[in-house]
């Protein structure tokens, strides 16, 4: 968990995302390492789910492709083993509750520990349903990343009190994917969170341009998911240069703000 804090706190950090196994196992491993080399401070590894209800079409299509290729949870673990040969960048899983539940909470968290994956995000496990999972996550020293939204209101202090790793602020209503217009309302939430905790705060959902990367100056990090998946979708065989340039551009935008 400390690796996450060190990677993000006061760093104008950039968090990337990749769907494990997309477009295929080998390329996926390479592109994740490429992202780390390009300067991503932390990478979220998406474990594909058949019904990714918080995700927009870009990630949904990637998930579907991966599952059509026959990828299993164990393949994702194998992928992490490969990646870990080349990079120590902090990693967190992003998936839905069911694949983790089916694998078994304890078995899954134990596996995360042995693979050196520092945390996990499960968008369909809200505060009300987290207790059992968080207790085990703590035993294994894995972070459970809390999500906060513009709607969270008076739920915020309680969510923050259960947070570890970093706090994920959802920038706007709706699902993942690019937005033409993105307001900087989330900055206000970031400020409120910072009054309550020292845990790093990251803003995500809908960020895909240089100007949007500059919007959330108060956050320790921005999270970009769909835009990176889109690059891989458009350049499945040779995404390295595009990913690198994009990440460097977005990091540049972050550094230009502070």
């Amino acid at each position: 968990m400390n690796e996450i804090t060190q990677a993000l706190k006061n760093k104008n950090a950039f968090i990337g995302f990749a769907v494990a196994g997309y477009p295929n196992f080998e390329k996926s491993a390479k592109y994740i390492v490429d992202m780390a080399n390009a300067g991503a401070d932390l990478i979220e590894i998406g474990i594909a789910f058949s019904d990714p209800s918080a995700d927009g079409p870009t990630i949904m299509n990637a998930d579907q492709k991966v599952l059509e290729n026959g990828s299993k949870t164990e393949d994702v673990f194998r992928l992490i083993t490969e990646i870990r040969k080349d990079t120590n960048v902090p990693l967190v899983f992003l998936t839905y509750t069911n694949p983790v539940f089916k694998y078994g909470y304890e078995k899954f968290l134990s596996k995360m520990k042995s693979l050196d994956v520092q945390g996990i995000i499960m968008p369909d496990m809200p505060l009300e349903e987290q207790e059992a999972f968080i207790n085990i996550a703590q035993q294994y020293g894995r972070a459970f990343i809390q999500l906060v939204t513009l709607q969270s209101g008076n739920r915020l202090p309680k969510i923050v009190s259960h947070a570890s790793g970093f706090i994920y602020v959802v920038s706007s209503l709706g699902i993942t994917g690019s937005r033409h217009k993105l307001s900087n309302e989330a900055n206000e939430i970031v400020t409120r969170i910072k009054e309550l905790t020292d845990i790093p705060v990251a803003v995500g959902f809908g960020i895909n341009t240089y100007d949007q990367a500059k919007l959330f100056s108060s956050a320790d990090a921005i999270i970009v998911g769909s835009a990176l998946v889109k690059i891989i979708e458009e350049h499945p065989d040779d995404a390295t240069t595009y990913l690198t340039e994009f990440i460097q551009k977005m990091k540049g935008a972050r550094n230009a703000t502070n």
């Binding site: 369909d124 809200p126 709607q151 209503l173």
Partner: peptide, 11 residues
Amino acid sequence: GQFVPELLMPA
């Protein structure tokens, strides 16, 4: 239970 995203919990 209530396994929905935080975005929907207030609703």
